[in-house]
Amino acid sequence: MNAIFERFPYRVPASKRVRVIVNTDAANEADDQFAIVQALLTPKLDIRGFVATHFGAQRTETSMEQSFDEIERILALMEMSGDYPVYRGSAGRLNDEAPIVNEGAQFIIDEAMRDDAEEPLFAIFLGAITDLAAAYKAKPEIAGRLTAVWIGGAYPDGGEEFNLGNDIAAADIVFGSDIPLWQVPRDVYKMPRVSLAELAVKVRPWGTIGEYLFRQLEQFNLLPTHSPRWPPGESWNMGDSPAVSLLIDDQNFDCELRHAPEIGADMGYVHSGARRQIRVYKSVDSRFILEDLYAKLQLFHELQGFHF
């Protein structure tokens, strides 16, 4: 457990804690960073390690390596370098004929197959779900030994969505597996909406990591390569943070069980009812997500001994 939690003003019962693997395309945009920090500052989560994954080849051929570097940067800024292992995941889409079990996928297998752990295992996927598909194809037995939470896809009919589009075949493998899956689709993960003014007031003041979270998003917002419609210019969707918040409180009253669809090459869904049921979220509590993040950033800053 992170030593900082010993100085938190509350305790989490040991029976409530869960093991967590964080799989992230951290260098893709600017919101993965917020989810990573929130996970690191959540006492309920026993983070076993991070896996860096790709975010497609549209902008760079080294997206996984850039994500790996970004995870390491965040840990360094929080003075947690060496506290958590960081693994390299998939550098690109799954090769259906000969899936490569990279070190990230192997880590998922090894953690899932442990017999000495009492805490349930969750793996959260904040980008393409390539590494889980590779792990499953190599070791199908992991299906009964972890729950996956994926930020991706769309409902009810599917369609274009960034995380799904970066590896459609991998998502279809996971949907066709027996892995317990919580899906947070596009219309839901876009709910936690913030303004840059809000982040300037509630994130930026809280030490080195608060300043970094705000500044990297503000700088990304100014990139000249953006389209006229996205991003909006003065706001952002914290689209990856729901995966963390649902491990704090699973909000099981705001989801439904649906048979996993088959996924076509156009990202459309075929609802045959032949596959097992998955949990699909209909909404998330944006207030809970954001206020929890703000409070933990402030606590972390104060407990580090920094003062204005």
Rank of each mutant, 00 (worst) to 15 (best):
residue 1 M to A: 13
residue 5 F to S: 03
residue 10 Y to Q: 08
residue 11 R to S: 11
residue 11 R to A: 14
residue 15 S to W: 07
residue 17 R to L: 09
residue 18 V to N: 02
residue 23 N to L: 12
residue 24 T to G: 03
residue 33 Q to E: 13
residue 48 R to W: 03
residue 58 Q to G: 00
residue 65 E to D: 14
residue 67 S to Q: 11
residue 68 F to E: 13
residue 70 E to P: 00
residue 75 L to C: 07
residue 88 R to D: 11
residue 89 G to Q: 00
residue 95 N to Q: 12
residue 96 D to G: 13
residue 100 I to F: 11
residue 103 E to V: 06
residue 126 L to I: 01
residue 127 G to Y: 03
residue 135 A to C: 03
residue 140 P to D: 08
residue 144 G to R: 03
residue 146 L to S: 09
residue 149 V to I: 14
residue 151 I to P: 04
residue 160 E to W: 14
residue 170 A to C: 04
residue 171 A to Q: 08
residue 173 I to E: 10
residue 174 V to G: 08
residue 187 D to P: 03
residue 189 Y to E: 05
residue 195 S to A: 02
residue 198 E to F: 12
residue 201 V to K: 13
residue 201 V to W: 06
residue 202 K to P: 00
residue 208 T to I: 14
residue 214 F to K: 04
residue 229 R to C: 10
residue 231 P to W: 02
residue 233 G to T: 10
residue 240 D to R: 09
residue 241 S to W: 03
residue 247 L to A: 05
residue 251 Q to E: 15
residue 260 A to I: 00
residue 263 I to A: 00
residue 276 R to W: 08
residue 277 Q to M: 13
residue 284 V to H: 06
residue 291 E to T: 14
residue 300 F to E: 13
residue 305 G to R: 08
residue 307 H to P: 05
residue 308 F to C: 05
residue 308 F to S: 09
